[in-house]
Design a protein around this nucleic acid. Structure first.
Length: 322
DNA sequence: CACAGATGATTTAGGAGAGG
DNA sequence: CCTCTCCTAAATCATCTGTG
């Protein structure tokens, strides 16, 4: 697999600037002078600094100005990217058919690769693309195998092995293909004159099968990585929530609510209170914002408990007197 | 006073589960 | 199997607050 050497960036879309809000643009213009000053640093220092950034930071930086793009996208800057990737633990293996910015873009940039819509979480690792739901509908096609013009065994092109219910309208027995890749494959196959080029055609198909197999294996690795990341993140959020609950209980206890907290019914537990059950650490400022509401809540719960006690006491007295 | 960072409201994506 | 609804997490943005 030959790599291009002039720049790292093979795909202009990788460097497509993000659409910023007005406030973002204002911020950029105010701080641009300082960022630009970075480039006046000696190269070895610059490499050292950049090497401590995360890949997505490098990508964002390369999108800010032509100068940053020039520095970060040239072949001689590859060590920056390698250092940067080494800052992220537990990544899938580096795919040999992508370059570093493309790989960073696929892994970490959440924009649709087709329309640049933000916040797209679904990556099609088999096709090495991130598409929003709208673009998935146009750029991915669902077909039964027999619908393909060429034998699917030869195309072997990254089809879904199980129902892909995330695409509305796709039938479970259908396979999912990238329209662009089918077009490219068909074009390349049609370029062969099979009367003359049969050996070359066979070699092409063999190479294609091998390449597809490698990408499929790599996609599996990436999907497993996503599962691990999601699990880790879920755990992290649970820990933050738990610590917030503990912090709230501690502060309420300091205010004299400790006894009432221990007597709360499970259904009234602070764990499920909307102001408490949030994956955001409790700061002094947040505490100041929520304290009054939580004290009101504890007051209500105390009243509820005392009313309940009074009710049962009354009921008992009635039954004793009967 | 300007600025950076924190906060909270709102919007959006996507997963889980219920029901046809 | 498919669709719909609900819920959670993430992203975005305007506003607030603390600091120099």
């Amino acid at each position: 697999m030959k790599r291009r050497h002039s720049t790292i960036s093979a795909d202009a879309k990788v460097l497509e600037p993000k659409q910023g809000s007005k406030s973002n643009r204002r911020k950029l213009s105010k701080s641009s002078g300082r960022l630009a000053g970075l480039l006046s640093l000696p190269m070895d220092i610059l490499f050292e600094v950049f090497g401590h950034l995360l890949p997505i930071d490098l990508l964002h930086l390369a999108r800010t100005t032509k100068e940053f793009r020039h520095v970060l996208m040239r072949r001689s800057s590859i060590s920056i990217w390698r250092d940067s990737f080494s800052n992220v633990p537990d990544l899938p293996s580096f795919p040999p058919d992508l370059n570093e910015p493309q790989w960073a873009n696929l892994l970490f940039d959440s924009h649709c690769h087709n329309c640049l819509r933000a916040s797209v979480r679904t990556v099609e690792w088999r096709f090495r693309v991130r598409f929003c739901s709208k673009c998935s509908a146009t750029k991915l096609v669902a077909m039964y195998e027999w619908e393909l013009e060429f034998s699917p065994r030869l195309v072997a092109w990254r089809y879904a092995s199980k129902p892909d219910t995330k695409y509305p309208g796709f039938k479970s027995k259908q396979c999912v293909y990238s329209q662009d890749e089918i077009d490219m494959f068909v074009k390349q196959v049609q370029a062969f004159d099979l009367e003359v080029d049969r050996p070359a055609y066979n070699a092409y198909i063999d190479a294609r099968r091998l390449a597809v197999g490698n990408v499929m294996n790599h996609a599996k690795e990436c999907e497993e990585w996503v599962v691990r990341c999601t699990d880790d993140r879920r755990q992290e959020l649970q820990n933050i929530k738990r610590e917030r609950v503990e912090a709230v209980i501690e502060r309420l206890t300091e205010l004299g609510w400790g006894d009432d907290i221990s007597r709360l019914l499970p259904a009234d537990s602070l764990v499920s209170h909307p102001l408490v059950n949030k994956p955001v650490p409790l700061t002094d400022r947040i505490w100041n914002n929520i304290r009054d509401q939580l004290e009101d809540y504890m007051e209500d719960m105390r009243k509820k408990r005392l009313d309940s006690i009074a009710f049962w006491k009354g009921a008992r007295d009635v039954s004793v007197n009967m």
